[in-house]
Write a protein that binds this DNA or RNA. Structure first.
Length: 430
RNA sequence: GUGAUUGUAGCUCAGUUGGUUAGAGCGCCAGGUUGUGGCCCUGGAGGUCGGGGGUUCGAGUCCCCUCAUUCACCCCA
């Protein structure tokens, strides 16, 4: 084994797997286009304060999962981005996007970093695709974002998903509810587990998230956030649900759903897959109108977004056999030379074929004809082009169809004619 | 951070109560056809048995340490 191996929680993706990624990414980009989301790319690291302010200092992500470092002893601390929303919002504020147009629809496919203990569906470097809709967060905007997300799953053919949705109310609602929760849990303080005790102080909402079975009854009896909402918030939530029904998107209302990032308000949602292990959340998101103010934007900015874990998505697809048959595309033709002295001419022919837009492979290792043919077969080449002494002299090559095994003798122009595929433009017109 | 799990060829794994030069399948390379692949046959390359220490006449097999893996808690995508 090599002296070096991939860092804990990271992995290499070789061509066989890379084509699966390309397939999913292609669907994401295609649907993003249909829904009018344009790609945004932000830096892989930001100032640490951005995440502390944006995500919330009491969250696990900020508290113990960030890869932070000092670029130099006097410099400001930097952090490898653990999620995308804070960075996108920072970029939007910095560019003052909303002064250029009142609504922006952005999507991304990006690598993120979190210092967690790796397990099934959880790595330290992972990839999310997601969308951020800035400028409006109306029920229509929420439905727009959810439709895009669910549309990706539907297009990919993924089954067995659960969409759970909840409303967290506005900041005032949450503040009132926080106090109600604290009052409720305080008498039970001794029965709470360590982490819940801490949350009681800092962020009692997240006690509801606990999966600790010992706390189940206590949580069940807790006051409901829903009862602390203003009527407008309830009304708005109903409208979101109504829009989802209109679009045939199945959901379950779950009043215990609390997202782990502090910036969410009003609608929050999460999608889980039955194909995954303990880490079954495949995507999630919600509204975050207050994030802009939190980041020094001076005022709230209506915004709603989601993020989906690519690795988890791929695991679920694999389990459902949705990735079968995906493999790197082989060349159209493999140039086979009889002997090494002809390899120079073989290269010339290969380059001319490539210039003509035909994917062409050739042997670079000076191997036997048999080995070259094996290689052509392994790569899944459609044709083999034989160049022996006779062909070299006559300029008439042997073109063999590797599926039908039929072979014909043709000049280079005729070979190109036979192998040339219609260009993309042509096939689009056709 | 806590708990458990597993580390033998590129991959998936066998290796019996510790006993001579560590095996299989797949993959790879070559030959069988010195001008033609897939199937088949034959042969070959490839392993300091994760690393270190210990017990023993003898350790892939037992003990300790260490590193890594995987799964779960936690949290999240």
């Amino acid at each position: 084994m090599s002296q070096y191996q991939a860092v804990k929680g990271t992995k290499d993706i070789f061509p066989d797997e890379a084509v699966q990624w390309q397939f999913v990414e292609g669907v994401v980009r295609w649907l993003a286009g249909l829904y009018g989301f344009n790609e945004v790319r932000t830096p892989a690291f930001e100032y640490t304060e951005l995440f502390q302010r944006g995500i919330g200092a009491t969250t696990d992500i900020v508290g113990k999962e960030m890869f932070s470092f000092l670029p130099d002893p006097q410099g400001r601390s930097l952090t490898l981005r653990p999620e995308m929303t804070a960075g996108v919002m920072r970029a939007a504020l910095q560019r003052n996007l909303l002064s250029q147009a009142p609504v922006h629809k952005l999507f991304y496919i990006s690598d993120l970093f979190r210092k967690e203990r790796p397990q099934a569906g959880r790595q330290r470097q992972f990839t999310q695709f997601g969308a951020e809709l800035l400028g409006v967060s109306s029920p229509a905007a929420v439905a727009e974002v959810l439709s895009f997300m669910m549309g990706v799953f539907e297009t990919l053919g993924l089954k067995g998903l659960r969409l759970r949705i909840n409303t967290l109310g506005d900041l005032e609602d949450r503040a009132r509810y926080r106090e109600a929760l604290r009052t409720y849990f305080l008498p039970y303080a001794d029965e709470l587990d360590e982490s819940s005790k801490e949350r009681l102080e800092k962020n009692p909402l997240r006690i509801l998230d606990s999966k600790n079975p010992a706390l189940k009854d206590m949580i069940f009896g807790a006051p409901k956030l829903f009862d602390h909402l203003k009527p407008e918030a309830v009304e708005e939530f109903e409208e979101v649900l109504s829009l989802l029904r209109d679009r045939g998107i199945a959901y379950e209302v779950d009043h215990l759903l609390v997202r782990g990032l502090d910036y969410y308000c009003h609608t929050a949602f999460e999608v889980t897959s039955s194909e995954l292990g303990a880490q079954d959340a495949i995507g999630g998101g919600g509204r975050y109108d207050g994030l802009a103010r939190e980041l020094g934007g001076g005022k709230d900015m209506p915004a709603v977004g989601f993020a989906v874990g690519m690795e988890r998505l791929l695991i679920a697809m694999e389990k459902q056999g949705l990735l079968e048959g995906l493999k790197p595309e082989g060349p159209k033709v493999f140039v086979v030379v009889q002997q090494q002295e002809l390899s120079g001419h073989g290269m010339q022919v290969a380059f001319q074929l490539r210039r003509a837009g035909i994917s062409t492979e050739l042997d670079l290792a000076g191997r036997s004809m048999k080995a070259q043919m094996r290689e052509a077969n392994r790569l899944g080449s459609a044709y083999a082009l034989f160049i022996g002494q006779t062909e070299f002299e006559s300029g008439q090559y042997g073109l063999k169809n590797l599926v039908s095994s039929e072979q014909e003798t043709l000049g280079l122009e005729a070979v190109i004619e036979r192998l040339r595929e219609p260009s993309i433009q042509e096939s689009l017109k056709g």
